[in-house]
Simulated scan of single mutants.
Amino acid sequence: MSRDRIELRTADEVARIRDACLIVHDVLEAVSGVVAPGVTTGELDALAADLTERRGARPAFKGYHGYPAVICISINDEVVHGIPSPGRRLAAGDVVGLDFGVVYKGWFGDSAVTVPVGGISTAARRLLDATRAALGAGIEAATAGGRVGDIGAAVQGLVEARGYSVVRDFVGHGIGRRLHELPQVPNFGAARSGPRLRPGMILAIEPMVNAGGPDVRVLGDGWTAVTVDGSLSAHFEHTVAITEDGPEILTRPS
């Protein structure tokens, strides 16, 4: 396998990636289900670790370039890569991004959701709805014969039409034998640009959307990215297979 080419997976390989992706789905569902005021992010991380081990998988993020936790937990103005802590408690009204991946029998899966903590503001709810819709638009554009740029153009068009901005510092990616493979999948750009989408490509499509401007900065921990203007951010992600019959979401039960 070359690190500088886009891999096309066989049907058997896609099935193996789907196995990893369904573990990701199940763990995220369980972690999302215990999000509540007063719960610590460290408790969520411990739950994700336990459930991953029970399924015979390994966390994809822990140790990756030195990342210290099993799951990324990003709250409110944190965009991505927030580090869980036993001393940080969720509060009613927060929005919490949960980004999680596993490696199972040598294959990777990756997904993210942003969930409310109790009741949230109308503005926060609209941001989550828009980001979820942007992911749907990006996936719908991921058709064989198209281009990677079609995905970003679809995401950006929906997001900006609703008055939000797309983060440019972080992008989606190919995935398979490694967590990050080619091609990069930006959430912005021009349609009909970039690599051709071909059956067998596996993409992690992951819009990161800010209520304010697109600029982010990384905190002193070297990981947590926050919005420069302090605005709320949301993040949704699926691992998707390109097929002759259209995009297939692997991180969701069929």
Rank of each mutant, 00 (worst) to 15 (best):
H25S: 12
L250S: 12
L158S: 00
V155A: 06
E29R: 14
V240P: 09
Y164S: 09
G87K: 08
I75M: 05
S233N: 08
P116K: 10
K62E: 14
S32R: 13
A154Q: 03
V80L: 13
L51K: 10
D129N: 09
R217V: 13
S32G: 10
L90P: 11
G87E: 14
D26A: 12
G176H: 01
G194L: 03
P186K: 10
A11M: 06
I75D: 07
G66L: 05
P86R: 12
R217D: 05
G118A: 14
R18Q: 14
E13C: 05
T227V: 06
I242D: 08
E43I: 03
A46V: 13
V228K: 02
E181Q: 13
V155T: 13
G63V: 06
V14E: 10
I175L: 15
T143H: 11
M201C: 11
V14H: 01
D19V: 09
T251R: 12
V95H: 05
T41F: 08
D77K: 14
M201Q: 14
E244A: 15
N210T: 14
G87Q: 13
R217I: 11
T41S: 15
V102W: 01
D215G: 07
G163F: 04
G189Y: 01
V155G: 08
I202M: 09
G189D: 06
S32C: 07
A49Y: 03
S32P: 00
Y104E: 07
T143I: 14
R5A: 10
A36Y: 00
D110M: 12
P183Q: 14
V171S: 15
A211P: 02
V27A: 04
T131H: 02
A191G: 10
T131G: 08
D229E: 05
L98S: 08
L98Y: 07
A134G: 11
L219K: 15
A15M: 03
R198F: 09
A91D: 15
D4G: 03
H25T: 07
V24Q: 07
V226E: 01
C72W: 01
L98N: 01
Q156I: 00
R55W: 02
A154H: 02
P68T: 03
I75S: 04
S111T: 12
A144R: 05
G97C: 12
G106Q: 04
G200V: 11
L90V: 08
P68S: 08
G109I: 11
P116V: 09
L219I: 13
W223E: 08
V80E: 06
V96P: 09
S2I: 08
H25K: 13
G87Y: 12
D45L: 00
L135Y: 03
A234S: 12
G189N: 06
A60M: 06
I175P: 01
P214M: 04
D94C: 01
L47R: 12
R196H: 11
D215W: 13
E7K: 15
G66D: 04
T224E: 02
H81L: 12
V166G: 00
P214A: 01
N210D: 00
D169P: 03
D245A: 13
I242T: 07
G146N: 10
A191H: 01
H235C: 03
D129H: 07
T239V: 10
G138R: 06
I23D: 08
F108D: 00
N76K: 15
V79M: 07
G152V: 00
A154G: 05
